[in-house]
Design a protein around this nucleic acid. Structure first.
Length: 549
RNA sequence: GCGCCUGUAGCUCAGCAGGACAGAGCAACUGCCUUCUAAGCAGUAGGUUGGGGGUUCGAGUCCCUCCAGGCGCGCCA
């Protein structure tokens, strides 16, 4: 909006060589200090270099070309060449009314235009419960999905289930060994087996249901039953934990199916037809180096077994062939080394590699009172996502994950989190929402109407606190679009804290009810807008907006 | 050894696409509840942005280098 006006101004500012500059993005920002203006742009300074002209004269030319007195109360050149704008209160009121009447149309600029995007996240092995790191991926993935969905994309959320291969077999074998112990038949526990309590639980379940039925069997005789029983149980536990964490998926893609329905074989054959697959040392290789990877990768081992990478190839080829405009994978940072080979697959399959985006989420260091909690899935020593969520709460957990950039390591200290929980930032935001709700309840009791329209008189909103609040609200779409562009939901989190940080002082200083009628109505409508935006932002983060606290 | 990520206030973290005097929460200190929720508000204090070079009118942000931490570098999954 503002950027459009600027663009037109620049175009008509007789800066003739402008056409070739290809200005697809005009930087508009809110100044760090209120005193400087409501919005500003460094565009004159940026143009100075390209046009080889003095930034001040460029700024003058742009300013002279801006004719929008109904929007700008002032347009000034400042500092090293910034152009600072001050907005007309009447413009602010008009925008606020638009926000109120248009709601999501105002808050969710449609940049996706129905394009299809698929986001795959969590995809934890069904060999044990989710830990906190998975929770971080889940919170991020869900929020990114919400972000894109709000931006007008058609979004599919997928969980890739690694139900084939060695790990689920080891799980089944571990459960089998525990089962044998329950039937007092000797059995070696598998090397590298899973030691968690949940393995015993599964063994006991099976023993309770089937008694000693399998006690004389060797693992080979009953492996299918034990493997299936165990991983399916784990998978449904994972589903439940995610659901309790507020994270839902549209699709669960089984790795097994990729083998059984021939997808893996077909994908490899297709690559072979294109000449990207060859045999050497009695193994089958994918020519990843032809597409930028540092070495070729084995697809079928010399013993005839497929590698994990084989099904990964099939999985990604399948995904990209399903016609998505973009694929997003959210991976733990420990998998970053796999990015080049997956990119190579996308390219080899004849697609633009830029259709794939991998978001890496760094490790979560779990601490208790400053002491790191050692975690080892194999040894069964770890704190699960479920435990953390039940101890510190879902909203806090999600909010903490989403107040950090994904690519920075995160310290999660249970004691600190709990200690701070009464003063947790998430409550600060939620409290603003609850307070507004409470005022509305009071208003209803006094039979004050709570519906507003384009004609509501807002001119009473004239204090600095009120004007700042309005500006913050109507600038939400800017933050939103930046969050979408960068795939960084934490920008929403910080925005919400800032919004709440403007609301509370306002609430504290002024009265909403009990003022002269039109002022009271105006303030109620302002609150309604704050409520709308809080709800919108919290919704994207997957954090609840409680009516009462 | 090579690659990726990180290093910002005592602690946990932001810093928006290279722009103005580097911000927030917690912790510390001073005040504020008979008025719509004090999970709140007003205020004080706290920094050589890991070190050093470079590019630029301008660098926390880009490049090089060094230091520190994390994670990867299999015919493992």
């Amino acid at each position: 909006m503002i950027a459009d006006i600027l663009l037109k101004a620049i175009a008509s500012a007789a800066l003739t060589d402008l056409a070739e500059l290809n200005l697809d993005f005009i930087e508009v920002e809110t100044p760090k200090h209120e005193a400087l203006g409501d919005i500003s742009t460094p565009v004159a300074m940026q143009l100075a270099k390209r046009l080889r002209k003095n930034p001040f004269s460029i700024a003058d030319a742009i300013i002279a070309a801006i004719h929008a007195p109904e929007i700008f109360a002032s347009v000034e050149k400042a500092g090293a060449g910034f152009i600072n704008f001050r907005l007309q209160p009447s413009y602010l009121y008009e925008e606020l009314r638009k926000l109120y009447t248009e709601r999501s149309r105002y808050l969710r600029p449609n940049v996706g235009k129905g394009r299809n995007i698929q986001i795959e996240f969590v995809s934890a092995n069904p060999t044990g419960p989710l830990h906190l790191g998975h929770g971080r991926g889940a919170a991020l993935g869900a929020a990114v999905a919400n972000l894109f969905s709000a931006a007008g994309y058609s979004v599919e959320r997928e969980f890739y289930v690694n139900d084939a291969g060695r790990q689920v077999k080891l799980l089944g074998e571990s459960v089998f060994a525990r089962y044998k112990q329950l039937t007092n038949t000797p059995c070696d526990f598998p090397a590298n087996g899973y030691h968690g309590d949940y393995v015993d639980v599964l063994a006991r379940e099976i023993h309770a249901a089937y008694k000693d039925k399998f006690s004389v069997a060797g693992f080979g005789d009953v492996s299918e039953f034990f493997i299936d029983y165990a991983y399916k149980a784990m998978l449904s536990e994972i589903k439940k934990d995610l659901s309790d964490f507020g994270v839902e998926f549209d699709r669960w893609q089984s790795e097994r199916e990729l083998f059984s329905d021939g997808t893996v074989m077909k994908a490899i054959e297709q690559l072979r037809d294109k000449g990207y697959v060859y045999e050497e040392d009695s193994a089958v290789w994918f020519k990843a180096t032809a597409f930028g990877d540092e070495k070729d990768r084995v697809v079928i081992k010399s013993d005839g077994q497929y590698t994990y990478f084989a099904s990964d190839i099939a999985y990604h080829v399948l995904k990209i062939n399903r016609g998505f405009d973009e694929l997003i994978n959210i991976w733990g940072a420990d998998h970053h080394g796999y990015i080049p080979r997956i990119r190579a697959v996308i390219k080899a399959a004849g697609h633009d590699e830029n259709k794939l985006t991998v978001l890496l989420v760094q490790m979560v260091m779990l601490l208790r009172g400053g002491v790191p909690v050692q975690m080892s899935k194999r040894a069964g020593e770890f704190v699960t996502l479920k435990e953390v969520v039940s101890e510190v709460g879902r909203d806090i957990t999600r909010f903490i994950f989403l107040t950090r950039r994904p690519d920075s390591q995160l310290e999660f200290d249970m004691e600190t989190v709990k200690k701070e929980s009464s003063e947790n930032p998430v409550f600060y935001v939620q409290y603003a929402y609850a307070r507004i709700n409470s005022v509305f309840t009071k208003a209803k009791e006094r039979q004050i109407p709570l519906s507003f329209d384009g004609g509501t008189d807002l001119s009473g909103l004239a204090t600095p606190e009120e004007l700042q609040l309005i500006k913050k609200l109507i600038f939400y779409p800017m933050t939103f679009l930046n969050a979408v562009r960068t795939r960084e939901p934490h920008r929403i989190t910080f925005y919400l804290q800032e919004l709440a940080g403007l609301f509370h002082p306002f609430y504290n200083k002024y009265r909403i009810l009990g003022e002269e009628n039109s002022l009271s109505r105006a303030r109620l409508m302002l609150c309604a807008c704050v409520k709308i935006v809080l709800e919108e932002g919290l919704g994207i983060l997957g954090v609840s907006a409680p009516d009462k606290m």
